[in-house]
């Protein structure tokens, strides 16, 4: 698997991260080395092995449908970079 500059740009865009020229080159090199190293997994035969997400059998966790207070709005908004008294503020998304 060859990591190309185009692929780095593509995943960076998906990740909502922009890289300048120098860091793009570094990322291409380092990601390439890591991906190449990961190819070692191809030596392991995993045919018919069921992928495992959790080591314990995890099932849906149900709770009583009871009303309980959630976190106070002003506490949540206090940490925001920009907020009105009611909401987070972001640039206009609809014209």
């Amino acid at each position: 698997m060859q990591i190309t500059r185009e692929l780095v740009e593509y995943v960076a865009d998906l990740s909502r991260i922009c890289l300048d020229g120098a860091s793009e080159e570094k990322m291409e090199r380092e990601l390439g080395a890591v991906i190449e190293y990961m190819e070692v997994l191809n030596a392991l035969d995993t045919d018919g092995v069921e992928p495992l997400s959790h080591v314990f059998q995890v099932t849906n966790v149900m709770r009583e449908d009871a009303v309980a207070p959630s976190s106070p709005r002003e506490d949540i908004l206090a940490g925001a970079p920009e907020a009105t008294g009611q909401t987070f503020v972001v640039p206009r998304t609809l014209e």
Binding site: L7, V8, V11, A12, L14, S15, R16, I17, C18, L19, S23, K26, M27, E30, L31, V34, I35, V90, P91
Partner: peptide, 24 residues
């Protein structure tokens, strides 16, 4: 652009690398 600029300025190189790797 707000997402991209914030994340690009806010995360260090190793974190960016692992996010890119994970996305890939």
């Amino acid at each position: 652009d707000l997402y991209k600029k914030t994340r690009s300025e806010g995360f260090g190189d190793e974190v960016k690398k692992r996010i890119l790797l994970g996305t890939f």
